[in-house]
Design a protein around this nucleic acid. Structure first.
Lengths: 211, 211, 211, 211
DNA sequence: AATGAATGAGCCTTCATTCAT
DNA sequence: GATGAATGAAGGCTCATTCAT
């Protein structure tokens, strides 16, 4: 019996297959514990093919990360379109966060895992990620309402802490299946908590109920 | 007094040296990327010595984790002693979180990293960790004030989200050197944000200042 | 003259481009360490193109080798034309060696490196190389002067040793930039050393100056 | 049937076994084409053991090289002991070269192969090799006789060319089995050729027969 | 208790070569 | 003739762990 090699697979979009497979493996086992062998198999690909499209494991991980961040950002930009009022904007940010997480749980897991991986900020990757990660639309929204007196004038790290921190925390719980509450409840609670923490208490026009 | 020759003492507390070295390596590079070789070297120890004290890498990681959690818990229990009022208690929780993180940055990093490691909850480790991690003192405090009507009746995952989430988020920023605000400012902001998010709005007696 | 559109010419002599690129890569890194990828890139070519012109890496290496040897041989044949006297002929051999090396340093390096590659003498390559490498013109010259009593009757390996050895040695020094003397000086020294080593001391008629 | 691991091999001198195996593989197939797997097997060792003793393939190659050069040098120093006259000294150098090559053919092959490997001269290896390779005893001998007027005053590269070049050339022939002459004959021829090339012709006291 | 040489499965990556277009 | 994605065997190296001393 002659040993025939399988015919070269019709590509269609091999690169996409690899990214998807990588996302799944990375999000399940973490960057280090995921192996190129698993990724390659899941992508129905060969070693050579993976390395033809991505220089190495790091670059593959970065490609997956960038793809995810970009998708998240796009949704965030849309969510903030139309120049919403302060409270409504904050609600939309939280809303979008959880909608996206719900729709993309693997990516959510992966982005959380990799948030501080060293090699994400090396050389040329730096710029790419800086632009994506700086959440330009979000900060523009916040700055606008700080100037208008609707939001408190706090530094970015505290905004991140009070607005994104609870989102991240619950995302981790949810993603690891250790949450009991419904996403609807959580969205409402987090949004209102963030609003109460960030609104400018000196602004009398807003939120009559809680002066 | 008996005439004791001072022991060469390198061996005095080898186990402790190993745990300290392991903590440093694990917190810097993560569980998988830290190697027994690095740990052994940092502990000025030998392979045999490490494996004499700890069955394997997992058990070493667990030992480090348990040590850290216990230390954190002890402080939390102390912080909540004396049956403080609701707002004061929440302030103390946040306060303790950051004091401990500031005093034990490597441990803080490590505990965050390992929060969801699979092997932490296997077999006999399970019980040990359950008891430590369930934050018994914290939940007792919360339940007491829910019953008294001072705190809202929310499920544990939402309490964790709104109280611990911001702490964790800022801890990560701080530990990775990407925060600009002082810990004092942050403590105040997070504590007041948590209080506004968790206090029972129907309870008129409390906090007259912000009706 | 006919109005010809200038061809885009990238393809004009692709085969030549590939040989040149291969020569450069092989001479710099050796056969094994040079990669088809480097060669392909340097030749501004594609994988398919390289394999269209050469069956595989070995055949490419052989093509480069044959090209180089042929060029060297041609010059040697010319150098020995006109039936020179023994001393003059030896001088010309040395002279030609260094002129050629100076004009073709990459090829010189490559020919030295590959002198003993196994696959150079396999199957059909054998004949081709045998003919080229046997230095027919050189041995004809030597044999003629041995019969005439001007040169000593030594076996070929010793002739190679005393005549080519010094050339090779200095070539290696020169090619790796570790020589300090001028090529002129070296030519003179090697030629006269070779002459003194190879001339027949019993032949009184020659070289009266050095009895 | 229980799967028993072979008991740990009694070491004796594992490091030496590895060097010997590496020498054999490197000298037969060259640095790049020899594999760690072959070396490991030939040394009846494991991967881990090889890498325990040598940082990587390069360092192993260097260790082998240094060992060989040192052995060769030691013999050369001995050969030149006793302050021999110029002609006798040169004879001894050639003599030692071939005796050593005959006794250590694999090493001879290897040293020739690696003479110009880039990584031999990197960082700290540099010093080690410089000292070994500078042939201090040989140059001391030569300088002494240049001063005494017995040898011509030529730069080191030309001495290397005329004295060592023929040795190297014949070594290559011999080592690859392409020589026909006996080592005795060759020694004699090379030694006398070198002497005629290097002796100072203005020195009347030596070698009366050929002024 | 301590030491460190030894083990070997498994990982990331390279690279000559093939083939559909 | 040319292109470059796809293939997969093979290589160098790592690292948790064992065990003789």
């Amino acid at each position: 019996m002659s040993q025939k090699r399988a015919p070269y697979a019709k590509t269609a979009n091999r690169k996409r297959q690899i990214i998807d497979a990588a996302l799944q493996c990375f999000s399940e086992k973490g960057y280090t514990d995921a192996t190129m062998e698993e990724i390659r198999t899941l992508a129905h690909s060969s070693y050579g093919s993976v390395y033809h499209h991505f220089k190495n494991k790091e670059q593959l991980a970065i490609a997956v990360y960038v793809e995810g961040i970009a998708d998240f950002q796009n949704g965030l930009v849309e969510a903030l379109e139309g120049g919403p009022e302060a409270e409504e904007g904050i609600r939309r940010v939280v809303e979008h966060h959880f909608s996206w997480v719900e729709a993309n749980p693997a990516w959510a897991r992966y982005l959380v895992l990799m948030r501080h991986a060293d090699f994400m900020a090396t050389g040329e990757n730096d710029l790419t990620l800086q632009n994506k990660e700086s959440y330009p639309a979000l900060w523009a929204f916040i700055r606008r309402h700080i100037k208008a007196g609707a939001l408190r004038d706090l530094p970015p790290d505290i905004y991140a802490t009070l607005l994104i921190g609870p989102c991240q925390e619950f995302t981790q719980l949810w993603v690891s299946g250790r949450s009991s509450s419904s996403l609807e409840t959580v969205k409402r609670e987090i949004a209102s908590a963030a609003w109460r923490a960030l609104r400018n208490p000196e602004n009398a026009t807003q939120n009559g109920g809680e002066p």
